[in-house]
Design a binder for these strands. Structure first.
Lengths: 349, 349
DNA sequence: CAACTGGATGTTATCGACAACATCCTAGTT
DNA sequence: AACTAGGATGTTGTCGATAACATCCAGTTG
């Protein structure tokens, strides 16, 4: 879908009435502003009669607290800075969406800054901008080397949290890789009789891409298979297409493990254009299970990643730090293998 | 790509040093805080010697203005609230990205709130949350009926701007429809000899979907063609698939005009599963030109929408209102027809 | 040389909320 | 009836910045 800006469209002139403050409310209720403030902060010891008048005045004036003033005094804004790359990609976008919803549920608003990977200068500027908005915390949602570097170079005076795919790495190295989910894909292919695989990886400045490469290598070893090589793309369908189309000879392999669904789509088209049938001649599997993957031709075997859950989890962990609560961290379910028609038994030679 | 939250990953403990204020700077420079403030706001009449000391102190202390305090006093935050739906969809996501970049270039930050279409209550809550953050302005980036209603029911005390696809509607009804771009698609199909078309529409609570339906109808009339019906989807590939798969008999048409690329993907799979060849037996065209569309099988003929440009345009218009500048509004180029292999000559009967 | 002018700088008030402290009132005690 | 404890409420200060007003001083003028 799309929408475009409407030059003459509906809009609202800024109403000149300025918002009611606690002083206005206090005057209307015939009490001091502090009584109003007390009511708002949930103080118990207010006489019912007084309380009633305050409630009434609050309602009459349509009072809305001014969060700017509140955060100036209390030093805590209810805003979280979220840094991400390429929000137009499905993965990051859905992580952001999950984070946004989780933040809102907790009474926070997300300041989203989508950084351009190709423009390191913009990253610096954005961080400078963000550090001024005294935020409650900062979240890095899509992790590239640039992002990591920028994060390390910046001194946030607030809790910062980097959401990365190296889930559980510190606790258990095996845990980390298994969480990436690639092993399940490799095992699936091994079960179908495939012995020689190829990996099409994402750009290695992304930690997610590096993790997937490591997971692929480890899974190949674990299953006693052979890797016929690693090709490189940039997450886009175009790069997946090129990775295959530009090869003079296809690698000697019967299955492709592609680091995301978009590249898998491009790779499938290139393979089909070379006259190969999927999955009869060659199997291909992706990662992410974007909503379109089930409607590729053939429908793509892939890993379902719970992006919204990842976003929620990142926020919940940041909030735990901000509010120093000991809340049980939200868990992200491990990726789920979704077998579709793009993977089939290895061809008999 | 994807990333997931890292429970033990890199993070930064909040440094306990609190930020330097203009008072700290003033003391360090041996001047009054007001002199510092004057320097910061670009006041000319400061003696070079004094200025030098201020600059030095500013630098030594690593001063960063506290925007919360600034906006409390000045009443103008540099934040813009952006309301959107389904940011995980490519269109909205890229509009948001464009808006976000444009906002940042102007020194603003976007507070993005992604509303759930299915939960009107959440819309109210989000608007309440947003109205408290005294924003410089509010932007509605994806327009559904719920959004419009909520906007009308809420009293923003700031400029609000609704970005919609009814581009130029008020100026020129023909302009509005042509901007939607559908006429170019219909003309393209007519040029290939198609006479009977079907439209697969998006959910009619979206103004974009309604506009596209109207544009389709108008274009059919203008070209003297016949519409064999309008099917309905929800923008997803799954709904495009179902729209075709659930029909007992296909409509008597040689071409499908689908309101977005994702539904077109699903529809193509369903058509192929019915044994139809694209484009030999049936032509299909989409809208949006998502990056994957060129790698569908066959590659999809579609309309290229400049989403980032739309986002930028929306921000620039809102900023013009906020700052009451007479800046020339950014123009969004009209959608461009991208002909690929999914559309071909109408079959001879 | 005193009065004046205007540029440079300092002092105080303000935004809206919350917090600390001060004060008032009521009910219970002797 | 005077006294007190403690709950209810009011007053003042604070957060960091900007605005309005006040003051200081050097150089000009008559």
């Amino acid at each position: 879908m799309s929408t475009s800006a409407d030059p003459t469209g509906p809009s609202r002139a800024p109403a000149k009435v300025k918002a009611a403050t606690i002083y206005d409310v206090a005057q209307a209720a015939g009490v001091s502003h502090q009584t109003v403030s007390r009511f708002l902060t949930g103080f118990e010891g207010i006489r019912p009669a007084t309380r009633e008048r305050v409630v009434q005045a609050l309602d009459d004036l349509g009072y809305r607290p001014n969060l700017t003033a509140r955060s100036l005094k209390s030093g805590q804004s209810h805003r979280i800075g979220a840094l991400t790359h390429e929000i137009s990609q499905v993965g990051p976008a859905r992580i952001v969406e999950g984070a946004s919803i989780a933040a809102r549920e907790a009474g926070y608003v997300l300041d989203i800054v989508s950084l351009d990977t190709r423009n390191p200068l913009a990253i610096e500027e954005s961080l400078a901008l963000i550090t001024q908005h005294d935020l409650a915390g900062v979240l890095a949602l899509a992790v590239t080397d640039e992002m990591t570097r920028a994060f390390e170079a910046t001194s946030f005076r607030v809790p910062a949290y980097v959401a990365s795919e190296t889930d559980g790495a510190e606790d258990d190295p095996r845990g980390m890789l298994s969480r990436v989910g690639i092993p399940a894909l490799v095992a699936h292919l091994a079960g179908l009789g495939h012995r020689r695989l190829v990996h099409i990886a994402g750009p290695t400045i992304w930690s997610a891409a590096r993790n997937r490469i490591r997971a692929y290598d480890a899974a190949i070893d674990a299953q006693g298979l052979v890797s016929a090589g690693i090709l490189h793309g940039d997450w886009s369908a175009a790069s997946g297409y090129r990775a295959i189309a530009e090869l003079t000879d296809l690698p000697d392999a019967t299955a492709y493990v592609v680091a995301n669904d978009q590249m898998a789509l491009g790779a499938m088209l290139a393979l089909k254009e070379r006259g190969l049938r999927i999955p009869d001649d060659i199997s291909i599997v992706g990662v992410d299970d974007i909503p379109e993957a089930a409607y590729f031709d053939p429908p793509l075997t892939t890993l379902r990643n719970d992006f919204e859950g990842q976003g929620r989890a990142a926020v919940s962990r940041l909030l735990a730090r901000i509010e120093r609560s000991e809340a049980v961290p939200v868990l992200v379910p491990p990726p789920l293998l979704v077998a579709r028609r793009s993977s089939g038994p290895a061809p008999q030679r």
